[in-house]
């Protein structure tokens, strides 16, 4: 008996990170196209996908049945689903070939495409758009983290979501309604979105730490709670010093987005072979010169993780390391 489990081509993890970082590697203010970039990062596939009432067939349904279903619902493809498990997709091309070949009464499982490219529901919209650019498919199935089918997303779904968001952004800038992302910190409000990127040079301990101090100043000026400012500043400082000490150079990116601050430290190598080891307190590869400047005690990554609400690290030898620290701006 044939096994109909589809060949699923997972998203390239490196590409995902690169795309997110590419979008974050620009500088600007809320008036710039960054508003759109930010929107494409903020919106996730799950926000735009069609989840309810997805039309589907089972493996034993005929292609003719699938054809009628597609015609009735004006869609160009239909997923083959059984109990939440995705087995394949029947597209309009498959139907055309079946009509030409005279096998339209065959069951779907004989001809459906099983080499599937899917999107994950948590992916940013920016990445989903890349998929539509890179592949010729008109729609992608969407799976959750357990690889269960949760919906389907088409280019039309994405266009609709973007237009809706843009209309809302426009209304905000025209002052028709307050910015949704503007939240009060005590008595003070911040603007919806600020991003700054700072270069960090290898071995430049004379300047390392300037970015973190600038970030602290920005946050204090925005009226963010002092204790939270300190945690963010500590993480930014540790990461900035880490780039200067341990890498060939990189960037520190600061994003203030409504109720959330994200610090992204990205370097160009040499990468960390054993991340767990690097995260342990007291582990360091710093040289004596660095130690003489008061750094290199091996606490940097562990301390950044300690003060963050969310901490992620990804490293590839020799191409580099990306560390992401997130902070909620609600008071502790």
């Amino acid at each position: 008996m044939n096994d109909y489990q589809p060949t699923i081509l997972p998203a390239d993890a490196g590409q995902k990170d690169d795309d997110i970082m590419a979008a974050h590697s620009l500088t600007g203010t809320k008036e710039s196209p960054l508003v759109i970039l930010e929107m494409l990062q903020r919106l996730r596939v799950r926000d735009v996908m069609k989840a309810d009432g997805v039309v589907s067939v089972v493996r034993s349904d005929t292609l003719h049945f699938a054809q009628n279903l597609m015609k009735r619902n004006s869609i160009s493809g239909v997923p083959v689903l059984e109990e939440g498990r995705l087995f394949g997709i029947v597209s309009v091309n498959i139907i055309i070939k079946a009509l030409e070949g005279g096998y339209i009464q065959d069951p779907c499982h004989k001809h459906m495409s099983t080499s599937l490219v899917f999107l994950e529901e948590g992916m940013p919209l920016a990445l989903a758009i890349k998929y539509f650019q890179n592949y010729t498919f008109g729609r992608f199935p969407v799976l959750d983290k357990d690889r269960k089918f949760v919906g389907i997303v088409s280019q039309r779904d994405i266009m609709r979501a973007i237009l809706k968001e843009l209309a809302e952004e426009l209304a905000r800038y025209e002052g028709k309604k307050p910015a949704a992302a503007t939240v009060p910190f005590g008595e003070v409000s911040t603007s919806a979105y600020t991003m700054q990127q700072y270069p960090v040079v290898h071995n430049d301990l004379q300047n390392a730490g300037r970015a973190a101090n600038e970030i602290k100043r920005l946050l204090a000026g925005a009226g963010v709670d002092k204790k939270i400012v300190r945690r963010i500043a500590v993480a930014a400082y540790e990461l900035e010093i880490n780039i200067a000490i341990h890498s060939v150079g990189g960037t520190l990116t600061f994003i203030l987005d409504g109720q959330k601050v994200t610090i992204i430290a990205r370097d160009r190598g040499p990468g960390i072979a054993d991340i767990e080891w690097a995260l342990r307190d007291g582990t360091s590869t710093a040289n004596d010169w660095v130690r003489s400047m008061g750094f290199g005690a091996g606490m940097g990554l562990a301390n950044s993780k300690r003060v963050s609400d969310k901490f992620e690290i990804k490293s590839v030898v020799p191409s580099g390391t990306t560390v992401l620290c997130e902070f909620n701006l609600k008071k502790d």
Binding site: L205, G209, R210, A212, N213, K216, A233, V234, Y237, M293
Partner: peptide
């Protein structure tokens, strides 16, 4: 660097 650290904390 000591002063920058002091400012951070």
């Amino acid at each position: 660097q000591v002063i920058r650290t002091a400012n951070i904390i």
